[in-house]
């Protein structure tokens, strides 16, 4: 028997290896740091925000009505989103696509909406406020970059869930990674 490398059946690499996950985790942490900085400005902890290209635009965007639509400022929500991405990216070993599908699928679901909302906010900047915010664009780019590399792992988990279903095993137990089901389905 070949060594159990954690490569999913029918694949030629393991999408849950650290080499695959580490870049996403680092991106999420960078995204968190930028979003946290912007949130500090929105909470008025710092009085100025760095804007190299667009003059007063960042201030305009970060104090706009859209940014205050929810009880907490949007950059603070973004910061929470990046933390969720980093945490769900980091939790679990290199076989987590089958030992804990719930975290892989949570990871995929955390990355998706964060990217979607970021792109939406990028659209609203020029359309509603005729302004651009450099650091907001940077965080949006980071959130979109994370989507592609996160999805292969989710694909491996979904294929595993399909094999569990076809084998007639409990999908519930497989999803939450019960010990009793480990090793029953490849």
């Amino acid at each position: 028997m070949q060594e159990d490398t954690g490569i999913p059946p029918g694949w030629n690499y393991n999408p849950a290896s650290w080499g695959q996950r580490m870049p996403i985790i680092i991106l999420a942490i960078v995204g968190f740091l930028i979003a946290a900085y912007l949130a500090l400005f929105q909470f008025k902890v710092i009085s100025d925000v760095w804007e190299p290209f667009f003059g007063n635009d960042s201030r305009k965007i970060l104090t706009s009505k859209t940014s205050q639509i929810l009880p907490i400022p949007d950059a603070a929500l973004g910061a929470l989103g990046y933390i969720a991405d980093a945490a769900t990216g980091a939790i679990g070993g290199t076989k987590r696509w089958r030992t804990m599908p719930w975290i892989v699928i949570a990871f995929g679901l955390a990355v998706g909406p964060l990217g979607f909302i970021s792109v939406l906010l990028v659209i609203l900047q020029p359309v509603l406020y005729d302004a651009w915010c450099t650091l907001c664009l940077a965080t949006a780019a980071i959130s979109v970059v994370m989507i592609g590399p996160a999805m292969d792992e989710m694909l491996a988990s979904l294929q595993y869930m399909k094999r569990v279903k076809d084998a007639g095993e409990s999908k519930w137990k497989a999803f939450w990674g019960y010990k009793s089901i480990q090793g029953k389905v490849m």
């Binding site: 030629n12 979904l158 294929q159 399909k162």
Partner: peptide
């Protein structure tokens, strides 16, 4: 790279990942 049949293999049967797992 190979992806066990890709996204459609999440719903279809007789896919590369299912066959590889059987082997």
């Amino acid at each position: 790279n190979t992806y066990g049949g890709g996204w459609r293999a999440v719903w279809h049967t007789n896919t590369p990942h299912a066959n590889a797992a059987r082997l």
